[in-house]
């Protein structure tokens, strides 16, 4: 069976992109590995053996989360034809957080032992992914236009996302209110988003596996995403099953977001900033973007997390959550984008 020229070009572009982006990502990984987390002050040196694994976990964790969030972001932006789409803004991250926090609350209130205790400790990935997928489907369903009333309105989608996110926020507050006093600190810290979550190796590798499984369909859909970025009529006339593409990619983006949330809590704006940066560098071809944006996300979050980790010895309160740093970068970035798209006025 011979492959079509389109598939061959896609494969060639993917390989080019991999070779271009893997190298800087690896370089940044080693750079971040050199930054120490000191009790007091800052340090720059290769880690001693007794801390090496923790530094690897941390930098790798940031890379995986950044990769997943940016891959989800670029997919959502393509499918929704909306450059402001991002798992955080559309409420997918908060939906996943609801799942995780409900599970956490269940695990602290469950007094029994045995396999249920084990499941509660290791099984967070299930509610995280379920929360993300349900929220994604809900936002998409609510923002969907009525038959015959044209395509999906970008601002309607954003508004629905913001409202669903606010509802999720309220549910999170209720869960926090229900939580025993002893675990409130854990829940609040979780909501601020940070890489150091003390997850078990099993949970970490489970999340990585889920992210890889979620990413593969997106990687293979670069060409379809290019066509899917056109109107539904145009895409269908060019042989793309838009409904199937949307369903597959939405689920993939949600699954990746849910798995990332397990490792870090909700970290905002990575999925917004990184696709835009890479679009400026490699253009709007999704065969390139689906490779470049996730690596850009990995690099961005590795650097942001290393900043908070490396400077922790300078503050008496320890580490600043990395979610705060990404929000401080991403919030203004979002406003600038919105401002530009609205022709100069919000």
């Amino acid at each position: 069976m011979t492959k079509s020229p389109g598939h061959q070009i896609t494969r060639s572009l993917n390989l080019q992109m991999w070779s271009v982006w893997v190298l800087p990502a690896v370089a940044v990984f080693f750079l971040c590995m050199m930054v120490a987390s000191e009790v007091k002050g800052v340090g720059f040196y290769w880690p001693a053996e007794n801390v090496r694994q923790f530094r690897v976990d941390r930098v790798l964790g940031a890379a995986v989360v950044g990769f997943a969030l940016a891959a989800a972001g670029v997919t959502l932006q393509a499918l929704l034809r909306n450059p402001l789409a991002d798992p955080y803004i559309l409420g997918i991250s908060s939906g996943s957080s609801v799942g995780v926090m409900a599970w956490l609350l269940l695990s602290v209130t469950w007094k029994g032992d045995g396999w249920i205790r084990w499941l509660l400790k290791q099984g967070q990935i299930g509610p995280a992914v379920a929360g993300a997928v349900i929220t994604c489907l809900l936002v998409f369903a609510l923002a969907r236009p009525r038959k015959g009333s044209g395509g999906m309105d970008r601002l309607t989608l954003l508004l629905v996302g913001v409202v669903v996110s606010a509802i999720n926020g309220a549910v999170l507050m209720v869960l926090n209110w229900l939580a025993p006093a002893g675990v409130k600190a854990d829940l609040i810290s979780y909501m601020m988003g940070s890489i150091e979550k003390n997850v078990t190796p099993l949970t970490f590798w489970l999340a990585v596996t889920v992210i890889v499984l979620g990413y593969l369909p997106i990687l293979l859909s670069g060409r379809a995403l290019n066509i899917g970025s056109l109107s539904d009529v145009e895409a269908t006339s060019m042989g793309v099953n838009v409904a199937k593409l949307r369903t597959l990619c939405f689920i993939s983006a949600s699954v990746m977001t849910g798995a990332a949330i397990i490792l870090s809590g909700p970290i905002g704006f990575v999925g917004l900033i990184c696709p835009h940066i890479t679009r400026g560098l490699v253009g709007a071809d999704h065969r390139k973007l689906t490779v470049a944006a996730p690596f850009c996300g990995a690099i961005f979050l590795m650097l942001a997390d290393t900043l908070v980790r490396g400077t922790s010895g300078c503050f008496s309160l320890g580490e600043l959550p990395v979610g705060v740093v990404t929000a401080l970068c991403g919030g203004p970035f979002f406003l600038i984008l919105l401002h530009n798209r609205r022709g100069g006025g919000l």
Partner: peptide, 10 residues
């Protein structure tokens, strides 16, 4: 304060 596993080792 909130610390990292690395700081805990140190």
């Amino acid at each position: 304060p909130t610390i990292s596993m690395e700081t805990l080792v140190k």
